[in-house]
Simulated scan of single mutants.
Amino acid sequence: HRITAVRSVVAGQFAGLSDILHDLSLEFAAVEGYDEARAERVIEALSAEGLTVADCSCRTGEISGMTVEIEIVVGKKTALSKTLLLRVVNRACGRYFESPELSFEGDRARVVMCEMPLYDLEIGSAQHVCDNGELCGDCLNYFVNGAGSTVALISDGMGCGGRAAVDANMAVSIMSKLCKAGLSYDCALAVTNSSLMIKSEEESLATMDLMDFNCFTGRVGLMKAGACTTYIKKNGKLMQKEMPSLPLGILNEARFSKEDVVLTKDDWIVMVSDGVMIGSPEWIERLILTWREGSAEQLAAQIVKEAQKRRKNDHDDDITAIAMRVVENG
């Protein structure tokens, strides 16, 4: 039985490799084109500042704005100022960019600058460990994926304590690394699921709750594998996104349940683990709806605090909340 299970997982890994190659082809196809005129203006402007530019490209994507990549020849006395680079490229391209990322190899400096998106997220998070223990069976993470989106993740391992913590942290760690590397969420989920299934002979289950916020368009992609409700406050009205699905570690093929919604300034997204869902959900709905002045960090902390209070007469559990408010850049 074990050999059959391993064969099935290995076959799934090969299918996953095929999906990775497919994702790479889609990423190349998503590049709308290269703006050679702007690249020439950037080279001329930097040369006027005394810098030697070996190469420059201005790449535009479907939903990620413009990305400028510059290769500059540097010597021992060459000093690169991020402020100077930002000012020059903003003026040459006629757009606003985020602070440049610099890397060096030999006598070359690589500069990468991404166009500043319309929106950003104010993010706050809070957790409570079951019975005030040392290891939390929930794991969370959030990051900017380099393609114009902010990504937030929550995974809830089966039960509490060390074993649940290992499963949840493993799921979030693998998923985060694959997403940052540019893989699609479906492909990353398949690899994460396979990893949990072959981790040990004992059953390893973990939920996966993923939110992708496109900072250029305001589109929110909600993806769930066994995760509980996400709350969306849009234009002062609350929506509950339950999206039934199975957690990771059960079947060879894991699938997300998906929904999209478009948000604008001052809309909210609240993700929680199932430790929050005690009794009637009216209290958390009322809390989110009436939240006006406090920060995202304060809202997440208040949700966890209220959930702890309501668990006093019930068994304790790990509790996690991530609160996110849409804000405009600039």
Score class of each variant (00 low, 15 high):
164 A>Y: 05
164 A>I: 01
164 A>G: 06
165 A>E: 03
166 V>N: 08
166 V>R: 09
166 V>A: 11
167 D>H: 10
168 A>C: 08
169 N>S: 14
171 A>T: 14
172 V>L: 01
172 V>Q: 02
174 I>Q: 03
174 I>A: 08
175 M>G: 05
177 K>W: 04
177 K>M: 12
178 L>A: 09
179 C>D: 06
179 C>G: 01
180 K>T: 10
181 A>M: 11
182 G>V: 09
182 G>H: 04
183 L>N: 07
184 S>I: 05
185 Y>F: 13
186 D>Q: 11
187 C>H: 03
187 C>T: 15
188 A>E: 03
189 L>F: 05
189 L>I: 05
190 A>N: 15
190 A>Y: 09
192 T>Y: 03
194 S>F: 00
194 S>I: 01
195 S>M: 14
195 S>C: 14
196 L>M: 10
196 L>I: 03
198 I>L: 12
198 I>R: 11
201 E>P: 01
201 E>I: 10
201 E>N: 12
201 E>C: 10
203 E>G: 10
204 S>I: 00
205 L>A: 08
205 L>P: 03
205 L>E: 06
206 A>S: 15
207 T>D: 06
207 T>W: 05
207 T>A: 06
207 T>N: 05
209 D>Q: 10
209 D>W: 00
210 L>N: 03
210 L>W: 07
211 M>K: 06
212 D>C: 10
214 N>G: 07
215 C>R: 08
216 F>D: 07
216 F>T: 01
217 T>G: 02
217 T>M: 06
218 G>T: 04
218 G>Y: 04
218 G>E: 06
218 G>C: 09
218 G>S: 09
219 R>L: 14
219 R>S: 11
220 V>R: 05
220 V>M: 11
222 L>A: 09
222 L>S: 09
222 L>M: 13
222 L>I: 15
223 M>C: 10
224 K>D: 00
225 A>G: 05
225 A>I: 05
226 G>L: 08
226 G>D: 02
227 A>C: 03
229 T>G: 01
230 T>M: 13
230 T>H: 05
230 T>Q: 08
230 T>R: 04
231 Y>T: 04
231 Y>E: 00
232 I>S: 02
233 K>V: 14
233 K>N: 08
235 N>Y: 11
235 N>G: 13
236 G>Y: 06
236 G>M: 05
237 K>M: 10
238 L>I: 15
238 L>F: 07
240 Q>P: 04
240 Q>M: 15
240 Q>L: 15
242 E>R: 15
242 E>I: 14
243 M>C: 06
243 M>A: 09
245 S>H: 07
245 S>F: 02
245 S>M: 08
246 L>F: 13
247 P>K: 02
247 P>Y: 09
248 L>R: 04
248 L>S: 01
249 G>V: 03
250 I>F: 08
250 I>S: 02
251 L>A: 13
252 N>T: 11
252 N>V: 02
253 E>I: 14
253 E>C: 11
254 A>H: 04
254 A>P: 06
254 A>V: 00
